[in-house]
Design a protein around this nucleic acid. Structure first.
Lengths: 106, 106
DNA sequence: ATCACGGTTTGATGCTCGTCAAACAATAGG
DNA sequence: CCTATTGTTTGACGAGCATCAAACCGTGAT
């Protein structure tokens, strides 16, 4: 019933070096590849090759991404919906998410 | 008299996650801000606020950047000339260095 | 109220990394 | 040849990080 957003840095507070650090991990990079479409995603990571990871480990990586300002997480019921903060990132670092989208994905 | 290039990954071998990891450090980020002009630079880091760092520490960071494929280092005499591998990075990850240049610097 | 579900938090462990210090290597100059 | 310069390499140390496991917490269903 609480249904709100998890804590995250304001747009102006997003730091490039922290974003880079957040993306400098294979697991988080793979998570990013899912979020790059900009849509909301559940925490079901089946079909990602992340089955071997403990749920608390994934939760940790999700937190790193969120605290770096890369993603935003919304609580609805007992689920979490995660999405890329594309607009905010484009404001702070124009062209960055586009470059990532080009480099990854297709 | 040997005057050659220090070992570095081939263009196709440059991995995005390793580049991100290399850039996920404040010191290396500051070094990058110097190299973003694409020109060759000596290892004189005066006026960068890196005076407090030991020379071996800077050498370490230079190596990380080079092994990630971010920079290329040339040996001339007893000096090292370092420059951004802009063409190679643009080939692998189009728009990335431009986005970094926009985000940092001016 | 009780239970199951989805996810977080805490603690512990091992590995990686940033830093310094000292030794080393190669080169330019006397 | 000797010395100074420029930067690398090695070793050591401490901090940080990725991972797991177990406990915990809010929510929805029974």
């Amino acid at each position: 019933m609480v249904d709100g957003w998890l804590p995250q840095p304001a747009t102006e507070e997003i730091e490039l070096v922290k974003v880079m650090h957040a993306l400098g991990d294979p697991v988080r990079m793979q998570l990013l590849s899912v979020f790059l479409d900009g849509k909301e995603h559940g925490c079901d990571l089946s079909g990602l090759g992340l089955d071997h990871l403990h749920k608390s480990t994934v939760s940790h990586h999700m937190r790193v991404l969120r605290e770096a300002g890369v993603t935003a997480t919304r609580t609805v019921g007992r689920n979490r919906l995660v999405q890329l903060r594309k607009a905010d990132l484009d404001t702070r670092f124009p062209g960055l998410t586009d470059a990532l989208l080009t480099a990854m994905g297709r």
